[in-house]
């Protein structure tokens, strides 16, 4: 029997004033599965992730994480999701280590300095542990943001352009980390514009356009050329 979905979205709608951003999205992500959301700017990818992360409430429909309703049980959901968004959620005037300590204590985790250093080592930032974040590059800040999520050990990862700003080495590390996360039963929902390496981790590809799902296919059934053709067809745009 298949496992219960880690993420379940049913007929989800989100409107900002008169602008409908999500228009009846239904989607499931099972434990150990990664789904990549593709779509042009404004297709609704970030909105969907923010609703699942409990930052925004849906206008209609339901979104659940590990069986908990994102709108009605946000605290339960927050204990289970890790969000890597456009903003890195780090303080520029704290060091990398201090940032991790702050977020882990605030989340109620009991972690020692060695755990924090291990998390930094996992994203290859250990040598910069005591550097102020202000002095780190955008890619390094993105890695620190990932370390923050790694430390929280979430069941579901919501990633919005996770490889943005990462160098090839960072992208390789991210792919490897997400593969291990998946193998341990973690679920991943990832919004991306990348048609290359970033998609390797995905089991399914979902293309959003105008707030609707216009294509949903297993990744292995699509060649890169075919994906690019379908993407252009549905979004009237190329990669």
């Amino acid at each position: 029997m298949a496992a219960d979905p880690a993420v379940r979205v049913i007929d989800l709608r989100k409107a900002f004033g008169t602008t409908l951003v999500l228009d009846g999205i239904s989607l499931e992500v099972r434990p150990g599965e990664a789904v990549a959301l593709l779509g042009a700017n404004g297709a609704g990818k970030t909105t969907l992730l923010k609703i699942l992360a409990t930052l925004w409430r849906p206008t209609r429909g339901t979104a659940t994480v590990a069986g908990f309703d994102c709108a009605r049980q946000p605290e339960r959901v927050r204990e289970r999701v890790g969000l890597v968004a456009h903003g890195t959620l780090v303080y520029d005037d704290l060091t990398a280590l201090e940032n991790l300590r702050f977020w882990s204590v605030l989340s109620g985790a009991t972690v020692g300095t060695s755990d924090l250093r291990d998390a930094l080592a996992a994203v290859e930032l250990e040598p910069f542990a005591d550097e102020r974040v202000r002095s780190l590059s955008a890619g390094m800040k993105r890695r620190l943001s990932l370390a923050r999520v790694v430390l929280a050990r979430p069941e579901v990862m919501l990633l919005d352009e996770p490889s943005a700003g990462l160098d090839p080495q960072g992208k390789k590390w991210l792919e490897e980390y997400l593969q291990v996360f998946k193998a341990r039963g973690g679920a991943i929902l990832m919004a991306t514009h990348s048609f290359g390496r970033g998609l390797n981790v995905a089991d399914r590809i979902v293309i959003l356009a105008g707030g609707r799902i216009v294509l949903e296919r297993p990744r292995t059934t699509l060649t890169p050329d075919e994906l690019a053709r379908l993407y252009a067809l549905h979004t009237e745009d190329g990669p």
């Binding site: 930052l55 927050r78 999701v81 969000l83 780090v90 303080y91 977020w103 989340s107 109620g108």
Partner: peptide, 17 residues
Amino acid sequence: VGERENDCWDGLRLAPG
């Protein structure tokens, strides 16, 4: 004001507890 930097406000909201 400092919480607006790098969207840390969202981080405060997402912290369980």
